[in-house]
């Protein structure tokens, strides 16, 4: 097997503010092969955005700092190279699109300029050539009449169109990895599906790997090969998407799946929410982060952090009771 395109090992990122330490990312590891797609899911504050920002080395210091781990991309450890070298990779080999295209695009520059500036920077093309490439990308993402609209400003586009522009901008240098941080959250429901389809199509056409960040497991399930679940700054479960659905091995994942409204089955039942409050990231990460809310929690969970154990190839979970989860879960359900 060829080495993975991206190999994150034991990533640790902390934030320092007002004397407090926030453990945003604790010992996160995962890998991704070329052309593969994965999702990182979790609630707000789980550390998923910080994780990918750490990969991109876009963590601002102050207040944040990547404190440990390695991030191997195309063979080199991104955490070890210089900032100049990292800049050559950002926007070029690894691209990122963000949640809100209105605020993520510079309102006073034309989209053409915003696209050509990175094309010229990374590919060394002349302005004329860069514009042609930009126009090509815009039509690739399905924007009508790109040569007329290339000098327009972001406010002249609709939400969905803006996201397409962002995608075109991100892909214009032909990256091998695309990170999509909640790309559809700010869009209308009808548009969301279009964007997801677009990204998926482009992924296959261009053969790049994609990391999807989302708090909506259901949305990304149909699109990715594997899923990583994060909670409280920890990676709590990782599995191929089908295996995750069929056999969740972490109580949080179980809770997420149960919370998904189902159209068939017990439609008349109430939504099953997960009780409790989100974790306090200022606490030392030496116990299971989910224990306070976990209905299966034991004393052991509150005393020590469970290690990441592999239950099957490509299936990892961080729970003392991951092996017995399917039994105790059914028992609880039936009761």
């Amino acid at each position: 097997m060829t080495s993975p395109l991206l190999n994150v090992q034991n990533l640790v990122t902390r934030f320092y503010s007002d004397g407090a330490v926030i453990h945003a990312v604790n010992d996160v590891s995962f890998s991704l092969n070329a052309g593969e797609s994965m999702a990182i899911v979790g609630e707000s504050g789980s550390g998923k955005s910080v994780t990918v920002m750490s990969i991109m080395r876009l963590i601002r210091h102050p207040p944040g700092r990547i404190e440990g781990g390695k991030v191997f991309f195309e063979g080199q450890d991104l955490l070890a190279i210089s900032e100049d070298e990292m800049r050559k990779i950002r926007g070029n080999r690894i691209a990122m699109i963000f949640q809100d295209p209105m605020t993520s695009l510079n309102p006073v520059l034309s989209i053409g300029l915003q696209m050509t500036e990175s094309i010229q920077l990374h590919l060394g093309l002349s302005l004329k050539e860069a514009r042609e490439k930009a126009i090509k990308m815009l039509s690739l993402v399905g924007l009508p009449k790109p040569q007329e609209r290339i000098d327009d400003f972001p406010f002249q586009f609709s939400g969905g169109q803006r996201q397409r522009v962002m995608i075109a901008m991100a892909l214009s240098c032909n990256p091998t990895l695309l990170i999509a941080d909640e790309p559809t959250t700010a869009l209308d429901v009808t548009v969301q599906a279009q964007i997801i389809e677009l990204i998926q199509g482009l992924q296959q056409k261009l053969g790049m790997a994609v990391i999807w960040i989302s708090h909506n497991l259901a949305m990304v399930a149909g699109v990715v090969n594997k899923v990583a679940v994060m909670y409280g700054g920890h990676l709590v479960e990782q599995a191929p998407v089908d295996a995750l659905y069929e056999q969740p091995r972490h109580p949080y994942t179980l809770g997420l799946l149960n919370a998904i409204p189902k159209l068939e089955g017990r439609a008349q039942g109430r939504l099953v929410a997960i009780d409790g409050m989100p974790p306090d990231l200022r606490r030392e990460p030496d116990t299971c982060p989910f224990a306070p809310r976990c209905i299966y929690a034991l004393d052991k969970c509150r005393e020590a952090l469970p290690p990441l154990t592999q239950s099957a190839p490509g299936q990892l979970s961080r729970c003392w009771r991951s092996d017995e989860l399917d039994q105790i879960a059914n028992k609880v359900e039936l009761s």
Partner: peptide
């Protein structure tokens, strides 16, 4: 956010600051 986007595109600090 667009400043973050600019950095994510790999632009140098000078360009991010001015443009």
């Amino acid at each position: 956010d667009y400043v973050r986007t600019a950095r994510a595109k790999g632009l140098g600090e000078r360009l991010v600051t001015t443009r």
